[in-house]
Amino acid sequence: MGGKTFKEWQYFKLSITSFDEDIDNVHVIDQMTWRQWLNNALKRSYGIFGEGVEYSFLHVEDKLAYIRVNHADKDTFSSSISTYISTDELVGSPLTVTILQECSSLNLLDITDHDRIWLKRAVSEEEEEYCKCT
């Protein structure tokens, strides 16, 4: 019998934009803004159940964010963020998020050389967690 590997996390590479270069250049999107945007999106689409979706930031770099979501909630997460446009309250202009990549392993994430440090740390943390569980 072929053993099926258990997938706990799904990884997303996201980009946020207002589709206006001037506004994008002026604002730096920090982790709090990202979190607020994602929470609003989840709340809008799935209400209190959406707000309960577990996700964490692996890395945030202005308009790019790498996010880890529980595998069971990946469809909820992706559908809510791809159907949501925020109001003006965050940066004074509506923002949308695009899913650049979605994968089930950290090693499959598209990263640049600058991202190697946090990725290495994330991989080692995940391995540590896996060792603790087994």
Partner: peptide, 10 residues
């Protein structure tokens, strides 16, 4: 419904 379950649930 909209408050507790969002657009989808509603």
């Amino acid at each position: 419904l909209s408050l507790n379950l969002g657009d989808y649930g509603s």
